[in-house]
């Protein structure tokens, strides 16, 4: 689809004297499932809160479904579904009352869908939310977001505190919703590895800046690890972006974002998985980098 579900330009948010988010410019395509990754404190929650309209930007702009979320909250909110970090719910309400909350606060509420989901989850409507397990609470929170039939679903670290089974079930629920209709999903996580098969786009936030953004297929196709005899990286760096380099006595390992084909045959090329790419952008160098030798002429 041509339209961007979310568009940020130079978006920044300042708290006191720190910038939780700086100069964030990105586009999230409609219909995609986008992973928002980055270490804790990188600004993921801040970005999501700006997208959902809980916060106002200090600088720059954010447009969600073409509108400003803080200015046009009343119009946008019915089309947005949100599950905040640790899936906040009112613990003293029962499951049924929580769904009633959704019904009363949302005009476009699909009550039948909500009831059917809860039934499928095997939850007793009369139980207080505070007495449910973490996974069940997350599912209730997700039900609240999905029964709005949103166009954009925003999930802040939805599976961080869940056991593997609950995690699977939660992601399945999200994917099922995507399979059923036109929903764009943004989900943030600091665990990259399980996002590869769920998401098709990725945005990496490192130290409050966007460092990497784009379709995951393209990211995986364009990044690779080059292993070769010990040498400087400048030769490669003329054509490609060297993200990380490390050296042993006899060997140099580079992780590059290739601009085109790597023709130099002295390098062995290996594919990388998403986690390694993100780690490289985060500045992690395995074994530590040794000082560079004098750059040798590379054929």
């Amino acid at each position: 689809m041509e339209n961007a579900a979310v568009r940020c330009e130079g978006l920044g948010k300042q708290y006191g004297s720190t910038w939780a988010l700086s100069d964030c410019t990105l586009e999230i395509p409609a219909g995609s499932i986008t992973a928002l990754v980055g270490p804790n404190g990188a600004g993921k929650t801040t970005l999501l809160h700006l997208v959902i309209g809980l916060m106002r930007p200090t600088k720059g702009s954010v447009a969600v479904l073409g509108q400003s979320p803080s200015a046009k909250a009343a119009e946008l909110l019915p089309r947005l579904g949100f599950v905040a970090q640790d899936h906040p719910l009112y613990r003293n309400l029962t499951v049924t009352e929580t769904l009633e909350l959704g019904r009363r606060l949302n005009p476009g509420w699909d009550a039948a869908y909500a009831r059917e989901r809860v039934a499928r989850l095997g939850l007793d409507g009369r139980r207080k939310v505070g007495k449910l397990s973490g996974g069940q609470q997350a599912q209730v929170a997700l039900t609240l977001a999905l029964a709005k039939r949103p166009q954009l679903l925003v999930l802040d670290e939805p599976v961080a505190s869940l056991d593997p089974l609950a995690r699977r079930e939660f992601l399945n629920a999200v994917l099922e919703a995507v399979a059923e209709g036109d929903v764009t999903v943004i989900l943030s996580s600091h665990i990259v590895s399980e996002l590869e098969r769920v998401c098709d786009h990725m945005v990496a936030l490192i130290q409050s800046h966007t460092r990497l953004a784009g379709p995951i297929d393209e990211i995986l196709a364009s990044h690779r690890v080059l292993i070769g005899p010990r040498t400087g990286a400048t030769g490669v760096a003329r054509v490609h972006d060297v993200i990380r380099e490390s050296h042993t006595e006899r060997q140099t390992t580079l992780l590059v974002r290739a601009n085109g084909h790597v023709y130099d045959t002295c390098w062995q090329q290996h594919e990388v998985d998403l986690e390694e790419v993100v780690l490289a952008y985060m500045g992690y160098a395995p074994g530590g980098a040794m000082p560079l030798p004098e750059p040798e002429a590379v054929a």
Binding site: N172, L175, A179
Partner: peptide
């Protein structure tokens, strides 16, 4: 169906 595969494998429907 796409839904069934997604439910079994937990992968992106686009895949």
């Amino acid at each position: 169906t796409v839904k069934e595969v997604v439910a079994t494998l937990t992968i992106n429907p686009n895949t």
